[in-house]
C-alpha cells in the first residue's frame, strides 16, 4: 500500500462545452481500495466527469490530484498508465472478439501485464461467460456479453484506479449481479473504483454514493 491515503482528489472542478457548464465546482476524494458510485439525473455531467478525469475534455478550472501529484494538461498519460477505463456504449472498429480482448495487452504501457489462459478462464467463469466467445465475431455475441468480456480485460490490466461508466447498463439482472460481485472482488483486492451509475442496486453495494445533482 502506498503512502497517500487518497488515490484521487478532485478540487473545485468546472467543465463546460461551448460555454455551457456541465460540471460546476465539483470536489471529491477517493480512498485506496474504496468503491464509490456517482449518481445523478441524466445530463447532470456524470459521464463528463469521468471524461474530464481521464483528460478527454478540457477543464475550465479546478484540479485533479492522482496519487499525490497534480495532473496538468499534456500529462494525462501518466494517470492513464495506472488506470483502467470502461466507457458506455462502445462500438468497435474491428471484427473479432479476440482482437478486442488482446489489443490492450499489446500497448507499451501494459507490456508488464500478464494475461494467461488460466486468468481468462477464471475471469470468464466469474462473469458467466463461455470461453467459446473468444473465437467469435463481435456481431455474433450480445451487448451484455460484450460488456462482461470488457470487465475481464479491465480486471486483467491490473490497474490501481478503475473508472466505469454505467457498468451494469447493458445487462439483465442476473448478469448485473455477477458483474457487481466481480467489481467488488476487484475492490477487495485493493483496486479503487469510481463508477457512474443509474443502477440503485449497484450503487447500494458501493462504499459511498455521491449524487452529482445535489452538489
Amino acid at each position: 500500500m502506498k503512502g497517500e491515503e487518497y488515490i484521487l482528489k478532485v478540487n473545485n472542478l468546472n467543465v463546460a462545452y461551448n460555454n455551457h457548464i456541465v460540471i460546476r465546482d465539483f470536489s471529491m476524494q477517493l480512498r485506496r481500495g474504496e468503491m464509490v458510485a456517482i449518481t445523478g439525473a441524466s445530463g447532470s455531467g456524470k459521464s463528463s466527469l469521468l471524461r474530464a478525469l481521464m483528460g478527454f475534455v478540457p477543464l475550465t478550472s479546478g484540479e485533479i490530484i492522482f496519487d499525490g501529484a497534480q495532473m496538468h494538461k499534456g500529462q494525462m498519460e501518466k494517470l492513464r498508465r495506472q488506470t483502467a477505463f470502461l466507457p458506455q456504449d462502445l462500438s468497435f472498429p474491428c471484427e473479432w472478439v479476440s482482437e478486442v480482448l488482446e489489443t490492450p495487452f499489446l500497448f507499451k504501457n501494459n507490456k508488464n501485464v500478464t494475461a494467461t489462459k488460466a486468468m481468462w478462464q477464471d475471469s470468464f467463469q466469474r462473469l458467466g461467460l463461455d470461453e467459446g466467445i473468444m473465437d467469435k465475431r463481435l456481431n455474433e455475441i450480445s451487448g451484455g456479453q460484450r460488456q462482461r468480456m470488457l470487465f475481464a480485460v479491465i480486471a486483467m490490466l491490473d490497474k490501481e484506479l478503475i473508472l466505469l461508466d454505467e457498468p451494469t447498463s447493458a445487462l439483465d439482472s442476473g448478469s448485473a449481479m455477477l458483474v457487481t460481485e466481480f467489481i467488488k472482488e476487484m475492490c477487495e483486492s485493493g483496486k479503487s473504483i469510481l463508477a457512474v451509475t443509474h443502477d440503485k442496486q449497484f450503487a447500494a453495494e458501493c462504499d459511498r454514493i455521491i449524487n452529482i445533482s445535489t452538489l
Binding site: 471524461r51 481521464m54 478527454f56 492513464r80 498508465r81 488506470t83 483502467a84 477505463f85 470502461l86 466507457p87 458506455q88 456504449d89 462502445l90 462500438s91 468497435f92 472498429p93 489489443t103 490492450p104 500497448f107 504501457n109 501494459n110 480485460v153 479491465i154 490490466l157 490497474k159 473508472l163
Partner: peptide, 11 residues
Amino acid sequence: TYYYFMLGNGA
C-alpha cells in the same frame, strides 16, 4: 468511444 477506451487503458 473505442479510441478513448484504448487511451484510457494505457494506449
